[in-house]
Design a protein around this nucleic acid. Structure first.
Length: 578
DNA sequence: AACGAAACTTAGAATATGTCCA
DNA sequence: TGGACATATTCTAAGTTTCGTT
């Protein structure tokens, strides 16, 4: 009987082993298949699809005039505005509690563009924004928002269903026989331009887009989308070397806006995979490239030395390359190549460190970059020379631009550009940090805390910041109070509970969770983790870590992120190395 | 080679939705 | 059960790089 049992056990074990092996084999096959599919060039160069069909973009609803009980006043006098002028007045009125409406540039641009929409009579009257009273418009807007919040369950459901219908009709396309989700299928509604930082055009009127402004792109054998009744498209194109479905030119800066696929689409996924493969390629030759630019610091040629210092910054500090831009058209922001003398201060010694470079400038989105960093002597000497006898407004690397830099990089490695360094350094940092911080024996809470820490290190490297949440101090205080409460409860009330051990354990767990929450929140208050997670960190590092650490992927990636990174989730084994 | 335009990625804010606790 | 807070999604501005033209 005993031996029979033994045998049964053995058979069971073997069966488990066999199924395990089968599962592994199946998974490997799947990975191989996907890699093959992606690596083989399906189409000739530059061709992105063979068939593309969609219903065109969704247009925002027409303007609804104000009800008769909402008034606009000028200089204390009630003025009934013409529909076009009224629509623009509402754009401003809705924003009354936004800080932009107090800014001079925003106000001036708004007034200029608003007056263009007025009829002669209105234009004659309305010349001073300070005399305009939008408060009733603002109140109405607040009331509308509030009413929507307080609407009944049935009303909310009806709204949801209406949105669902729009999504079904306009949110998908057919690309090479696959139904794919479109990312931004809605035409941007009119409003006031919200440029960031000191943008000289903020407050200007962003005009309503008509079908006559929109170019459609689809395949010639597809059903061409039907424009809204009584309208026609600007143009219908059949260009399969691009990925966009529709485009139009925006009136503020004259740039083209596109309607493109969602991040979970095959087209975007492949592109993402290629991006990380390029970064992994850089990993293989980064030592050589580093040696090269360290050599170049000693070059006779000024441009070469400037290029070397710029590369040193891009590599060590993960700075963006940054093109120079037209003055007066955009906010005054810079990146590595467009740094000016005024952004750099040198300290031979600072706070016990040698050769410190202090960088202080506004980067993309007018986010401040501030860093004091020790550099090697050769870099310091070069910087010192670049700064000599120069004016604050002069460019630090006067003889260098992104084109030259990228040309040089692509000669070192095919496809290499400045941007790849950011991807590479971000991903390798995550991998190293995870290796250093996490232990298999930690519980899930602790592991997640480590992941966050690693993620945070990357976000800091890439300078991904966010505004301090408006209610931060209050919510932090609330959390602290909760922790205190829990601690007290542990002492007082547990002594009366029957199953003391379990109660203590439960309480401890809760306390730990709260503690972790508090630590995370405090350390994350001005740091945005999302950007690096979604755009810089090779998802395969995360997937492999999750497998190794037995952490559920749902704990790291939300639904949208899991969809976006489906390729990585499907093809990654626990031994993946970036 | 220089340029401006086009195409596509990256970015934080705004808004919507979900969750948790009193 | 509702409101406070957390998290997810949407939105569109602002970058980088490539492309096309002269």
């Amino acid at each position: 009987k005993e031996s029979a049992e033994k045998e049964e056990k053995e058979v069971g074990k073997r069966r488990i082993r066999r199924t395990k092996r089968a599962v592994t084999a199946a998974r490997l096959l799947k990975i191989q298949k996907q890699e093959e599919e992606w690596e083989e060039k399906k189409y000739e160069d530059g061709v992105k699809w063979k068939f593309l069909e969609h219903n065109g973009p969704y247009f925002p609803p027409d303007y609804q005039p104000l009800p008769d009980n909402v008034h606009f006043f000028y200089d204390g006098m009630e003025v009934k505005l013409s529909p076009a002028a009224e629509e623009v007045a509402v754009f401003f009125g809705r924003m009354l509690d936004h800080e932009y409406t107090f800014e001079e540039v925003f106000q001036a641009n708004f007034l200029t563009d608003w007056r263009k929409e007025m009829v002669d009579e209105e234009r004659l009257l309305i010349t001073d924004l300070d005399k305009c009273d939008f408060r009733e418009i603002h109140t109405m807007h607040k009331a509308t928002v509030e009413a929507k919040k307080n609407s009944t369950v049935a009303e909310k459901l009806a709204l949801k269903e209406a949105n669902q219908k729009i999504l079904e009709e306009y949110g998908y396309c057919l690309l090479d026989h696959h139904k794919e989700r479109i990312g931004n299928f809605k035409i941007e509604p009119p409003g006031l331009f919200r440029g960031r930082g000191g943008h000289p055009k903020k407050g200007m009127l962003k005009k309503r887009i008509q079908p006559e402004d929109v170019t459609i792109n689809c395949s010639s054998e597809s059903r061409v989308p039907v424009p809204p009744a009584g309208h026609s498209w600007k143009q219908v194109r059949h260009d399969n070397t691009v990925t966009w479905l529709a485009s139009w030119t925006e009136n503020i800066q004259g740039v083209t806006k596109y309607i493109m696929l969602n991040a979970n689409s095959k087209l975007k996924g492949e592109k993402d995979w290629e991006k990380y493969e390029m970064a992994r390629k850089l990993k293989l030759c980064v030592d050589d490239i580093r040696n090269q630019y360290l050599q170049d610091l000693k070059s006779e040629d000024m441009v070469t030395r400037q290029r070397a210092v710029a590369l040193y910054f891009i590599d060590k500090l993960a700075l963006r390359a940054e093109n120079e831009k037209e003055e007066g058209e955009t906010a005054d922001t810079v990146g590595c190549c467009s740094l000016r003398v005024e952004h750099v201060t040198l300290h031979k010694k600072l706070e016990g460190n040698k050769y410190v470079v202090e960088l202080d400038f506004l980067g993309k989105d007018s986010i401040r970059y501030y860093n004091k960093v020790s550099v090697i002597k050769k870099v310091f000497k070069n910087l010192n020379m670049f700064l000599e006898d120069r004016n604050p407004g002069d460019e630090l690397f006067g003889r260098l631009n992104t084109i030259m830099l990228n040309k040089h990089l692509s000669s070192l490695m095919t496809g290499l550009t400045a941007r790849v360094f950011r991807t590479y350094n971000a991903s390798i940092t995550l991998q190293e940090q995870l290796k250093e911080l996490t232990n298999k024996s930690d519980n899930e809470q602790e592991k997640l805390l480590c992941y966050n820490k690693a993620n945070r290190a990357v976000a800091i490297l890439c300078n991904h910041q966010r505004a301090l949440p408006k209610t931060f101090e209050q919510s932090m205080a609330n959390l602290q109070a909760k922790v205190r409460q829990k601690k007290q409860k542990r002492v007082i009330s547990i002594s009366q509970v029957v199953d003391k051990k379990a109660a203590v354990r439960r309480c401890k767990e809760k306390l730990l969770k709260l503690d972790v929450q508090a630590i995370n929140r405090e350390e994350n208050k001005q740091i945005a983790l999302g950007t690096s997670k979604v755009s810089y960190l090779d998802p395969r590092i995360t997937v492999a870590w999750c497998k190794n650490m037995a952490v559920r992927i749902e704990k790291i990636y939300n639904k949208a992120q899991r969809d976006k990174f489906a390729w990585a989730i499907n093809m990654t084994e626990d031994d993946f190395e970036f």
